[in-house]
Design a protein around this nucleic acid. Structure first.
Lengths: 123, 123
DNA sequence: ATGATAATAGTAATCATTACTGATAAGGAA
DNA sequence: TTCCTTATCAGTAATGATTACTATTATCAT
């Protein structure tokens, strides 16, 4: 896995923000530094970064994929109204439960869907 | 929401099995009863059944969507080798945690990814 | 520096899902 | 039962996110 300015720019962008971005949002952001970067390059690097565990991804209920440079174990809450994604701490990990049962868990994803505090108040 | 033989066939198929099926697998299965059912009809019904909560869906790490007629709260383990999907009980629910914090959680999805018992033994 | 080759830009292809349209059938009212 | 309204359908075309391809470029070990 070579280090390229494209991969570095993508990773640095995601790490510099505590939000969640789609591939094309990342493409737009990184183009400010590397104007002729290709969307394919963004996808390829996102995919290798996912594989190496340097980033994670969440999916909203309408199938949009968002990427996250904050990789300390945490869960996500997706608001179905404002589409914001909130982080929260993983309650008890299911890993232990499964690994005591003979499974090898490489990672777990917990996503809750509903309406966030703000949208409830502004209903 | 009208009751049609297409929707009934899809729901009955999913409820009759304790496995997880993709849209096109469901299409193939239901075509044995309704040979000229359209793939679009399968997708439309899966989507309304998801919305009404009569079925649920899981996604493997390679982005394939699978549907499940068993809707008692449970979590999924996706084996990255054999691609099988295993059900397991939800540990402690994150709902309580979030709702005490002012969020309205309509549903939660917990998915673990890794290698299953069988694949570990036959490695 | 040089060479091997991994990664890139740009573009074309893929493929799951959705949208469209005229025809069909579910199910309430008479 | 028969008729009407309209949701749903079959069949097909369109969409759009993601992936594949290819000639070129840039990384990095030697």
């Amino acid at each position: 896995m070579r280090e390229t300015k494209q991969k570095t720019a993508i990773l640095e962008f995601l790490r510099s923000k505590r939000q969640h971005y789609s591939a094309s949002q990342i493409y737009d952001a990184v183009r400010e530094k590397i104007p002729n970067i290709s969307l394919g390059t963004v996808y390829r690097n996102l995919s290798t970064l996912l594989e190496s565990g340097e980033i994670i991804s969440v999916e909203t209920s309408d199938k949009c994929v968002f990427y996250d440079g904050f990789i300390k174990d945490h869960a996500h809450f997706v608001c179905q109204k404002c589409k914001n994604i909130f982080d929260f701490e993983l309650p008890t990990s299911a890993k232990e439960h499964l690994s005591s049962d003979g499974f090898d868990v490489s990672y777990e994803r917990l996503v809750c869907y509903g309406t966030c505090k703000n949208c409830l108040n502004n209903n």
